[in-house]
Amino acid sequence: MLESTADIATEKASRYLQQLCKHFAHKIPVSFDAAAGQISFSGGDCRLEADDNRLRLSVTASDAETLAKLQNVAASHLVRFAFREEMQITWQRV
Rank of each mutant, 00 (worst) to 15 (best):
R80P: 00
D63T: 12
A35R: 15
H26T: 14
S62W: 01
E3P: 01
E86G: 06
L78N: 09
Q88L: 08
E3N: 13
H77A: 11
Q38P: 00
R47Q: 10
Q38N: 10
V73N: 05
T10S: 11
R84N: 05
A34S: 15
R84D: 03
G44D: 04
A13K: 07
F41M: 03
A64H: 09
C46R: 06
C46T: 10
A50Y: 00
R15V: 06
S42W: 02
S14K: 11
L17S: 08
D33E: 11
H23Q: 15
A82F: 09
F24C: 13
Y16M: 13
I28M: 15
A25R: 11
A61G: 04
S31K: 15
A35Y: 08
Q92W: 02
D45G: 07
E3R: 15
A25C: 12
Y16S: 13
L48K: 04
G44F: 06
I89L: 08
L17K: 10
M1K: 09
M1T: 07
A9C: 03
F32A: 12
P29Q: 05
F24D: 03
F81R: 07
E86I: 10
G43H: 07
Q92K: 09
R54D: 02
S42T: 13
A75P: 02
S42N: 08
A68S: 14
A75S: 15
